[in-house]
Amino acid sequence: MRYLPHWLSCALMVPAGLLCGGADSALAADLSPPPAPVIEAPALPGWTYRFTPYGWLTALNGTQTIRGRSAKVNASFADIVEKSDTLVALMGDFEARNGPLSLFTDVVWSKIGLDGGNIRSRTLAPGVTGTLATSLSLDIEMAIVEAGAAYEVYRTGPLAFDLLAGARYWHQSADLSLAVAGTVSTADLDVVGARAIAHSGSVDWLDPMIGGRIRYTVAPGHELLLRGDIGGFGLGSDLSWQAIGAYGFELGTYQSITFSGVIGYRALYVDYAQGEGRQRYQFDMLQHGPVLGISARF
């Protein structure tokens, strides 16, 4: 036994659990388990923002009641532009998005004046005496502020569906001018020359709302949006609803800001009333018309 096999001499000459150098060491290295792979957590999506100043070419159809005197309104945007003494509006929409969640707000402020060609008198409210005089003019100052959140609940290919909830705040101040007649009670009106003016003062209310919207990517940089909501539920107004259809198309990018054109149509209806008799105020009105805007996404 002068000469022992290499594997046996290794076993006799080294402590248990160690292997000889050379090929056996390489074999041991091959048999050792590979290091566990390092799994990096996915980066959290960041917030993106979009601001859209726009113009809403509004028409009005409905009834305005101030201090128990009602006027039927039927005015297209062309009528308002042509015959209105006043037409001022500031409008803008802002949305912040992070993954499926988005927060939004929309502001509309307008001051509209209508002459007698687009309004006509209606019946008096109970408790208001006298016959109804001819309506001469109607001036409405109005602010509408929406705020809420939307969450994407379904997506397939280019189509996505969001649920949304929020609130819509209304502020109004309106003046209705009537022709003075001997049979008209003017005790609660301001009389200026041949006019009796009913002032509403400041009227404010808040409507909760719920709804949904569909976003469809027609092509890269082109998106179709359809939105509908309903609100009021007797908590603010008796009923309020809104429907919007819009199409956005990218115009270009400048200093990391993507600009898009927006065209669409918006309809907003509300039926709000408070008070009785000479304190009666009601705004039962549909506002509708084309929307034109430019959005900036960053």
Rank of each mutant, 00 (worst) to 15 (best):
S76R: 02
T156M: 06
M13C: 04
D79K: 07
L4F: 11
P158T: 09
A23T: 09
I294N: 02
G252M: 03
G157R: 01
A246C: 01
W109A: 11
L164T: 02
D85A: 12
G182P: 01
F77S: 03
N74P: 01
Y265G: 06
R213E: 12
A71N: 03
L60R: 11
S260V: 03
A43I: 06
K72V: 12
V291S: 00
R69I: 00
P126L: 08
Y154S: 08
D93F: 11
A89E: 10
V73K: 09
D30I: 12
R278S: 03
V291T: 09
S121L: 02
K72L: 14
P35L: 12
L138R: 03
A16D: 05
S295P: 05
F259H: 04
P100G: 08
M1V: 02
V191S: 07
E95V: 14
L103N: 04
R155S: 15
T48P: 03
G245R: 11
G127V: 04
V107N: 02
Y254W: 15
A41P: 12
V108N: 15
V218M: 14
D204H: 13
A179Q: 11
T134I: 00
T217V: 15
A187S: 15
T258P: 05
R195M: 04
A219V: 00
Y54K: 09
G293Q: 01
D24I: 00
R297C: 03
D106E: 13
G127A: 08
A28K: 07
S256D: 15
K83T: 04
A36G: 09
W241G: 06
D229C: 10
I39T: 11
A273T: 10
Y169S: 14
G289P: 10
A181Q: 07
W109Y: 15
P158R: 11
S32K: 05
L164S: 06
I214W: 01
S9L: 04
P45M: 10
A296P: 09
L27H: 07
W7L: 07
V145N: 06
I112A: 09
H288V: 05
L27V: 09
G62D: 09
G22T: 02
T58G: 04
W205F: 15
Y3I: 10
G228D: 12
L101H: 04
D175Q: 13
A160W: 02
G193D: 07
D207V: 08
L178D: 06
A246F: 02
